[in-house]
Design a binder for these strands. Structure first.
Lengths: 340, 340
DNA sequence: TCGAACTATTAGATCGTTCTAACGAATCGA
DNA sequence: TCGATTCGTTAGAACGATCTAATAGTTCGA
């Protein structure tokens, strides 16, 4: 069991000081090329392995980032996570991944652990409305944060995500342009910024077209197929059912499709249906889902850029990055619809 | 900008030595309860934050694990990752997540980085057949590894995953029991252990039922819907097309369904179809996919247990954990089928 | 020709924990 | 009563890197 090879050993082997060897590790351009090579050769010869812990202790910095996601079982978040990880890896950062499962208490524990770990920055998709405490904890630990997909009020950290309001408005415009007039909205759980914004988008859209919302058609449920199905079923079963349903996201739209299937209704004919996210599954359903597309990988990439920029220059002013969503027309809203 | 609060400050405030304070942090039962409380109170009063880097440097241990996954855009792996993260979090470990995108070179870089980071252990889903180098690198750094879902030859690290061979045999048994006799297999890319094993399961299954495989019906493609679709299309278009198709996984089975849809064929009637994995999407397709179920979260949990046990006691003998899969009959194989 | 400015390298202190070995006090058995 | 054992605590070294300030040696301008 040989001793671990340290920078001291490398320096001795190469005939330079430990300081010089350290500079070589960090690719300093102060070091003359031949010294560089000499030290690198010694490192290879001795089988040197850099010790992150030691470096981090002294420099008070790590090359790791935290990524706190609400629920990876949602394919959208899985893609988002992949996008973030990919971008950070490019920049030599490792990402610590954690799934809060929408649990505020769990999130607090994770954030505390990340602070102890001295992460260089955190991507946070805030779960629960008391996330301010966590954001403040991160702030007082001088850890930069980017909020992704959702944000808490108070402007504690920049937000990177879609323009939810504009997205749902696109959806409303679309179904109205096809002649639909009786619109329902199936939203996510109240309290999250994305839910609020998308709901507001629905109301704004209706107002624009001089339509009045029917309160019993404004619904909300947990973000999954099953709850969406159960929530929408009684609405679809009414004689005066809506002729269009806008959903908080694709997963919930699938739930609605399943409900329609049970009742013998055809999406795009009996009822127009629009989702949000455009996960890969959406184009494969029959009928294929018309949805509001926001590129998860792209948002991940943008969030990474904002966070890494902040880390590189903490005093730089950062702004929110709002991504404009895009309507993807497929089959679930059908052709032009004439009210009977 | 106040100085960081260290154990020294806490010790001084509590009127004990730093050593004692350190033992309190680690919940040592050597310390008498009142001292414990006294120190904890000081920690709270001063706002002490534990410094992982310092601890790791001295103890040569971290509370972080590496999780190297091939492709999270596959929902199965997303669930697996969630399961692992959840179990590790329970045990006070943070998990560093990385997606190799099936790229051996990328995997090497990530593994090196994890070693530098001094992770306590690694979950590896080996990409590429030259993963032995990476496993050896981890071994010489004394880092325990568990291989998940796939494994490289040489028994370098324990394997936790499904019994692929038995799984595909279940699928073959099922379609044969329904009267199907002309079976095709749409496999994943060659070279990966899971591919080889599932293919062998197909051959073994046929042999058991005294059926001879037709070489032109043994196919392989990339693990996604699109490539599956493109690969199976010409086969389905033949006049002597197979009456049953077993797929490497659910994602590829969906690709086959799409191909059938294009050709006006009905899964379960014209051709029986079986997948593998049982991702949540599978029960929602029409017809719902009959598949071989392996619980991703459960496998993640088991893998975590094996790795954490090894970390706790490195000399303990560890064995592979092979999970028996289960046939989930839905609609994609239809009723009993009589050859015309 | 001298001092200033720059270049490549270095000595020694330092980051905040944990480890080792030892301490005094209390308890115990013979 | 004495030595051995146990208990709770502690001093000081150690982990392996980076940081600060300083060192020679070189170049340059006036």
């Amino acid at each position: 069991m040989g001793q671990r090879v340290t920078l001291n050993d490398v320096a001795e082997h190469a005939g330079v000081s430990r300081s010089t060897a350290s500079l070589v590790v960090r690719n300093s351009k102060l070091i003359v090329p031949e010294t560089h090579e000499k030290v690198r050769a010694s490192m290879k010869a001795l089988g040197y392995i850099y010790n992150q812990s030691a470096g981090s202790l002294r420099s008070q910095k790590t090359k790791t980032l935290g990524m706190v996601i609400a629920d990876v079982s949602n394919p959208f978040y899985a893609m988002l996570a992949a996008g973030i990880e990919w971008a950070c890896n490019q920049m030599d950062y490792l990402t610590i991944f954690a799934d809060t499962a929408e649990d505020g208490h769990r999130q607090k524990m994770i954030v505390d652990r990340l602070i102890q770990h001295n992460v260089a920055g955190v991507f946070l998709c805030p779960a629960g409305d008391d996330s301010n405490t966590d954001l403040n904890a991160l702030k007082s630990a001088d850890t930069p944060v980017v909020q992704i997909m959702r944000h808490v009020p108070g402007n504690l950290a920049p937000y990177v995500g879609p323009d939810n309001l504009a997205g749902v408005e696109l959806a409303v415009d679309h179904v109205v342009s096809l002649g639909r007039r009786s619109l329902a909205y199936l939203g996510g759980p109240v309290g999250k910024s994305s839910s609020e914004e998308r709901l507001k988008g629905f109301h704004d859209g209706l107002r624009k077209h001089r339509l009045t919302p029917r309160p019993e058609f404004i619904l909300s449920a947990g973000i999954n197929r099953r709850q969406a199905l159960e929530t929408i079923l009684p609405i679809l079963d009414r004689p005066d059912r809506p002729d269009a349903i806008i959903c908080y996201n694709d997963l919930m739209a699938f739930g609605v499709m399943l409900a329609m299937q049970r009742l013998g209704l055809t999406p795009g004919k009996d009822v127009a249906l629009v989702g949000f996210d455009d996960i890969s599954e959406s184009e494969l359903w029959t009928p294929a889902l018309t949805t509001i597309s926001i590129d998860a990988r792209n948002i991940g990439r943008l969030a990474a850029r904002v966070l890494l920029d902040t880390i590189a220059d903490p005093h730089k002013a950062v702004h929110d990055v709002i991504v404009q969503p895009r309507l993807v027309v497929r089959e679930s809203c059908g052709e032009r619809f004439a009210k009977r």
